[in-house]
Design a protein around this nucleic acid. Structure first.
Lengths: 412, 412
DNA sequence: AACTATTTGTTCAGCGATTGAATTATTTGC
DNA sequence: GCAAATAATTCAATCGCTGAACAAATAGTT
């Protein structure tokens, strides 16, 4: 009999402070209003003495600053509110997509400090050239960040495809990439390849995963577990369980687009038959709405459809309803399996939510046994097409918040 | 912007020892051979001094004993091997199912120390009566455990249905239970209701979940993430991610039986249409094999089918192949979504694996985009019909191994 | 204006747990 | 029989948290 309950690394003397730094910083990040040291002590159960010591470390490490608006007014010495520092580390978000490149910088407090989108059809461009263009944008972003007193603590790149542990893009069908070793291609470009603190300076991840992370951090304070569906040409999903992204055994989770909806239905380019993508993918919806071959840029297709549906165009409405039913069948599978209470429609689906929501909900309530007791919410994403870049940059700063000791050791 | 990266409770001074007790005990439990204190120090990074102190606590708390077979032979003072104690705390496993009651006791080392199965059709029996019979069996198990020098540290009950946080069985269709508040019903029965250490003495959980846990602990040392499918009258699944059971937002994950396979196919008693259960459930297979109405006890149905198929009976073979295809379509959905590398066929499916395996694998390789790079293993469960009870008892002792401080405080 | 109540944040001795080096224990190989 | 090797224990030192006392700063009261 073998246990698999992974016994995490041992807890050394110093880990204590390391863990409490993370706990206190996490509370400051999660708080609605700037908390005082006394508030933090009450919340965490640590003594005020300990919290003061921990906070001092965080302040000298430029992760936290004292904010003006005092958290409390009344008798007694006024409290000093603590907030995440806006002038410390920041995250660099990058994205390569079918028809644009994007770069952004997000500071520790979650504020967007730089944002560039470069529109261009990247399908005819070689991976090396596309990445070279991206590096140029990244260089400008870095300069802009430095001018604002920010230090980039790392970068994350979103791509619309399957990425392995080493950062190799194994397959990005809509981009035409196959086995592109991103870190190796970028090896000659210093701004993205300094090795710091054992953490690779650049993390490459699936667009749908990072968009889900963006939604997690940007969305309403609410649910910690949800399915975020990115409806583009392909359909990807990011699964957030208890506030953490679930990546699967090899990082290839969320391929909702190839869930079989009709086992012997339309053939799919994945080799299967009846995949969701063939019924609720962008091309399928456009074809059903009679807009096939219009060859719209990916992002305008969704808004065009929304306009038509809003104007009451019969064929658009029918196309969206059919897509919603197909999507609902797949979502019902997911909810039956994972018991999630929230489904977020993102990417191209976001503007179409008014028409997709009710068929999706109908299929859920029809097919999910537990839906009667625990209603499922279907809502549009709060971030638009920028979710993936923002999520990429956010993932960098979130990593620092989750483990501040690493950053503090680096700063000294 | 709100963080949801749950900042766990603060780490107090005493948590240090608490955590290291868990780390060291976890290593002892996971080791192939009894490790020495020196081995543990090397593995965990703690000093030998600390490990000695921690181990002493574990030994006086009857969680660990020194084993004879020395872990090493060579020059130098011989090491003393450490193993989980066989005479300390033990877990009581309970199960109510359609046609039997089961009770077992498993010690800390995972050895089965008591096992009773009481066959009876429980559908006509009221929940209160069924539970009363179970309590009687539990009382005998407790006496037997005491006679062997064991102390029961808790109990877990497996039921074939949906259970909420409070231990209420909301719905167990095949048993005919609805909203049965198990803890309240058992309130008058002392052996299962002593409150100890803040932990409720009895945990009620879904049978498929506990069977998956049983398989996790009993199976090969290997995979930490897998899908365990319990094919009975209904089809349930337990999802193990990174060595931990995933329960979903409300504990109702794993309803794989109601994944839609043919969206407008056969009506299901859940109200939906084309659910997997209608194509790969026990009744569906029996009907397709021409054995409908034979009214076999649940456990013999599978062996009967296996006999027929083994003898080459045409109709049985065809029925199993069709069920395998249906199952494969559902499993393909799951693998696309969660990127699991292992699927375990349990319950009634276990003896049928030789015939189910190849159609399931065929559908996976046909429909899962990443299957080409990361092959998926489909294998039978190593535990038979006892998986759920054993998993229930195992979950009790595993909880102690994961957090030994609670037990030690209780022992004094 | 002085005083009290109240709350925040800091200081400091004390303590528990880990650390690292030295010590003791026990066996193999020469 | 002795040296080398490995295991386990002992003990002073250190690190970080605790708890209580103390200083700081404000609102309300007389």
């Amino acid at each position: 009999m073998t246990s698999t309950s992974a016994p995490a690394g041992a807890v050394r003397q110093g880990s204590l402070r390391e863990l409490n730094l993370a706990v206190v910083l996490g509370r400051i990040a999660a708080a609605e209003r700037p908390p005082s040291r006394a508030d933090l002590a009450a919340e965490t159960g640590l003594t005020r003495a300990t919290v003061s010591a921990v906070v001092e470390d965080l302040i000298t490490g430029r992760l936290v600053t004292e904010a003006e608006p005092a958290p409390r007014a009344g008798a007694g010495r006024p409290a000093r509110g603590l907030v995440l520092a806006g002038d410390g580390p920041a995250g660099l978000g990058l994205e390569v997509n079918v028809d644009y490149l994007a770069v952004c910088v997000v500071d520790l407090a979650g504020q967007l400090r730089h944002h560039t989108v470069h529109r261009a059809d990247l399908r005819p461009v070689s991976p090396a050239d596309a990445l070279a263009r991206l590096v140029e944008l990244a260089g400008r972003a870095r300069a802009d960040a430095a001018a604002q007193g920010l230090t980039l603590a790392g970068a994350a790149l979103a791509v619309p495809g399957l990425v392995d542990d080493a950062g190799v893009v194994r397959l990005a069908p809509n981009l035409g990439w196959r086995d592109v070793p991103v870190p190796a291609v970028l090896a000659g470009h210093p701004p993205l390849t300094e090795q710091v603190d054992g953490v690779p300076p650049l993390v490459v991840d699936n667009e749908a995963n990072l968009a889900a992370l963006g939604e997690l951090h940007a969305g309403p304070a609410g649910p910690a577990s949800f399915l975020h569906i990115s409806g583009e040409v392909g359909i990807g999903a990011g699964i957030v369980l208890d506030g953490a992204l679930f990546r699967g055994a090899r990082g290839w989770s969320g391929e909702i687009g190839h869930i079989p909806i009709r086992p012997e239905g339309r053939p799919c380019r994945c080799g299967g038959r009846g995949c969701l993508e063939q019924y609720a993918g962008q091309e399928a919806i456009l074809a059903a709405a009679g807009l096939a071959g219009a060859d719209l840029p990916a992002d305008t297709a969704a808004t065009r459809l929304a306009e038509l549906a809003g104007a009451g165009a019969e064929h658009a409405l029918r196309a969206l309803d059919e897509a919603g039913v197909a999507l609902g069948v797949a979502v019902a599978s997911v909810v039956n399996l994972l018991d999630l209470d929230t489904v977020v429609l993102g990417g191209g689906y976001a503007p179409l939510t008014p028409w997709l929501q009710s068929p999706v909900l109908a299929e859920i309530s029809r097919r999910v046994l537990t839906a009667a007791w625990s209603p499922v919410t279907v809502r549009p994403a709060t971030l638009g097409a920028d979710a993936a870049v923002l999520g990429a940059a956010g993932s960098v700063v979130r990593r620092i918040i989750a483990r501040p000791a690493g950053w503090l050791a680096r700063v000294g």
